[in-house]
Design a protein around this nucleic acid. Structure first.
Length: 670
DNA sequence: CCCACGCCTG
DNA sequence: CAGGCGTGGG
């Protein structure tokens, strides 16, 4: 058992509050700059919504046709039924500037929007390649790089198609399609495989539609964003090249999610810079370059993201429960780490902004999927929930992602198994955040069979994240604290006040499922550890720190009795060692100290922390020493002749209680 | 009267 | 640890 939420985690969560506000600050001006022109045309406030909707409508037909085309392409290996859309395919191909755009001089304006965009895209790509030596073609790793020669052709076509084909398809085939195909004939238990195939297929379908919508959104988003920055292409290219190595070095698990974030970072950073430089605002021509490169970057990143999602979903195994699947993603948020480490760097703020941007765009994506585009999208207030940080790794992700306040992020229906689509939905909806997959909800060292482990998530929900005492971080085995990780995983980082914990527990169906009728050994263990902090806990404290306990008179009394017994033992030891000191001829109180090597401490630790897996706070040593001194002085002064001579000592000691760390609220981690 | 506490006992 | 008991504060 371990309570371990490193200090920095708690602190960073506090910092998060501040930083998280930035997106809100940033977005408005952002919007203003970007939409100065269009602003006039939209009388009501939902500029983004309107813009996005409008553009989406304009391109929906195209997107769909392309999507299906690519879809069919992707399905070639395994899903023949998907290729039914080929009728539109020809149309698209004809419409698209299928020729090589290396020329990059296709006239604009006469073409329908689609052609226009494609031409622009192609042109910009060409420019980028020329200027930057096509560095960004490498930044996505081998799969992308190997395709760099085919890029010309690809880029001439719809970005959607190309991305799907070149990037996702390989992965998909490997992890899902190939698996299906191979397993189907080979396996004797075809039932299983069939169901899995179906699952895979459904997942894939969903993924495709999600991808489409996501891409639509991103496209619109970037379209709106596109600005005139002649240098951007250059910068983008070079940056991409620079990051390439880093990307390569990072673990494979550092998926496109991070790519996505990086790119978004860059892009948002660029946007910010541009806002400052008014002069750039005039170069419309160059803005198109930027637009195109932005689009491509985003598209690729999004594709990568989705790929990862699907890959994980399929490779993790369909028999896993959704929660398990979520937890199984071994990704680590390097971006988050960077963020926390570069508080002063220029990247910092953009990262936060990007989070907001992403969240928003994803939000929009969702609503567009529902075909009910509501202007609310823009009005959504972005509330920042501070992801509690993972205690696990040296890497402590602290990315703050804003969620729309009206939503409960990850509204898992815990009572019923999540359908896969929900996973993906949430994944996409709330972003493929590193916290999501990177933080195991169940640390490896955690005993899943432990009855209490089930409680963790819910206690975590109840947990109010806030900066806490300095004792945090002393815990030697951070990895075995499961609750925090769950919190990180996906649960809403909503700030829920604990004052009403019991009632809240009852209100929450999930929590109530885990409410203990009686106190368990785990609770006892926890109580003992709490004793290191508080010798005289109030009933409020007890209720607060045992949120999974259904308090009644009996339970409360029992808990109080526990602490009473703890005190009894504690004071007995104190008296015993004080007398021993006197017997040993100790003449000065100052000669009596309590260290971790002291026998007194050993005795106490043996009693309250038998497993010795909890790092006793230093404060407890101090209190113990003070107590010992009190006893020594009292006995030395022969006050022990008074039958109530200990009362004075108790009075002193009861004032030495310190706050119990918040981790204890995450309940029965034991 | 309730309750928390401390002490004693098993 | 838990039960029983007496005590004292609210």
């Amino acid at each position: 058992m371990n309570l371990s939420l490193p200090d920095q985690n708690m602190h960073s969560s506090g910092e998060g509050c501040l930083e998280d506000n930035k997106p809100d600050v940033m977005l408005p001006c952002f919007r203003r700059n970007m939409y100065d022109e269009p602003l006039a045309s939209y009388s009501n406030g939902s500029i983004i919504s309107q813009l996005l909707r409008k553009t989406i409508h304009n391109k929906r037909a195209l997107d769909e046709s392309h999507f299906y085309l690519s879809n069919s392409t992707a399905a070639d290996s395994s899903q023949e039924d998907q290729s039914s859309v080929s009728s539109k395919d020809s149309t698209v191909d004809a419409a698209s500037p299928s020729g090589h755009v290396s020329t990059g001089n296709s006239p604009e304006g006469e073409h329908p929007i689609t052609d226009h965009l494609q031409a622009k895209r192609a042109r910009v790509e060409n420019i980028i390649r020329v200027m930057a030596g096509s560095p960004n073609s490498r930044q996505h790793g081998d799969s992308e790089r190997s395709d760099s020669d085919a890029r010309d052709t690809r880029e001439a076509r719809e970005v959607y198609r190309e991305n799907k084909r070149k990037q996702r398809l390989p992965q998909h085939q490997e992890h899902s399609d190939a698996g299906q195909v191979n397993r189907k004939p080979g396996s004797s238990s075809s039932d299983n495989c069939n169901s899995k195939d179906e699952e895979c297929y459904k997942l894939k379908e969903q993924l495709h539609s999600m991808q489409r919508l996501l891409r639509q959104l991103q496209e619109k988003f970037l379209q709106v964003y596109n600005q005139e920055d002649p240098e951007y292409d250059n910068r983008d290219g070079t940056e991409a090249g620079d990051e390439h190595d880093i990307l390569e070095q990072e673990s494979r698990y550092l998926s496109s999610e991070d790519d996505f974030e990086r790119k978004n970072n860059r892009m948002t950073a660029e946007c910010k810079d541009r806002m400052k430089v008014v002069g750039y605002l005039v170069h419309q021509r160059e803005s198109q370059n930027l637009q195109e490169s932005l689009k491509q970057e985003l598209s690729r990143a999004v594709n990568d993201c989705v790929d990862r999602v699907f890959k994980k979903a399929s490779s993790t195994g369909l028999d896993l429960s959704p929660q398990q699947r979520m937890c199984s993603s071994p990704e680590i948020s390097m971006a988050a780490d960077r963020k926390s480490q570069q508080a002063s760097s220029a990247l910092d703020q953009p990262q936060v902004e990007e989070a907001a941007v992403k969240s928003r765009s994803l939000e929009y994506y969702e609503s567009s999927e529902a075909q009910s585009l509501q202007d609310q999208t823009e009005a959504l207030s972005l509330v920042v929930r501070k992801p509690t940080v993972a205690p696990l790794s040296s890497v402590t992700p602290t990315v703050k992602r804003p969620y729309p306040v009206h939503q409960t992020p990850f509204q898992f229906n815990y009572s019923t198994p999540l359908h896969d689509s929900h996973i993906l939905e949430h994944l996409l909806k709330y972003g493929p955040h590193s916290n999501f997959g990177g933080l195991p909800c169940m640390p490896p060292s955690m005993d899943r069979t432990s009855p209490d482990s089930v409680d963790l998530p819910w206690d975590t929900i109840a947990m109010r994240s806030k900066v806490t005492s300095s004792h945090l971080g002393h815990h030697p085995r951070p990895s075995s604290l499961g609750a925090v990780t769950v919190d990180n995983l996906c649960l809403p980082h909503v700030k829920i006040e604990c004052g009403e914990l019991p009632s809240m527990a009852e209100r929450n169906p999930y929590m109530s499922l885990n409410i203990q009728e009686g106190l368990t050994p785990s609770h006892l263990k926890k109580a003992k550890l709490m004793f290191f902090y508080t010798r005289y806990p109030s009933s409020n404290v007890l209720k607060t720190f045992f949120p999974d306990v259904k308090f009644n008179r009996c339970i409360t009394s029992q808990l109080i009795k526990w602490f009473s017994n703890f005190r009894e033992f504690y004071y007995i030891q104190m008296e015993k060692f004080a007398r021993q000191a006197i017997v040993d001829g100790v003449s000065d109180v100052k000669d009596i100290t309590v260290s971790r090597d002291s026998e007194l401490f050993r005795a106490l630790n043996m009693h309250y922390n038998k497993a010795n897996d909890f790092h006793v706070p230093d404060r407890f040593l101090e209190v113990a020493e003070i107590t010992l001194h009190e006893f020594y002085n009292a006995i030395s002064a022969a006050k022990d002749s008074d039958p109530s001579w200990k009362k004075a000592i108790y009075k002193v000691i009861c004032k030495l209680d310190s706050d119990v760390p918040e981790e204890f609220k995450t309940s029965s981690y034991l």
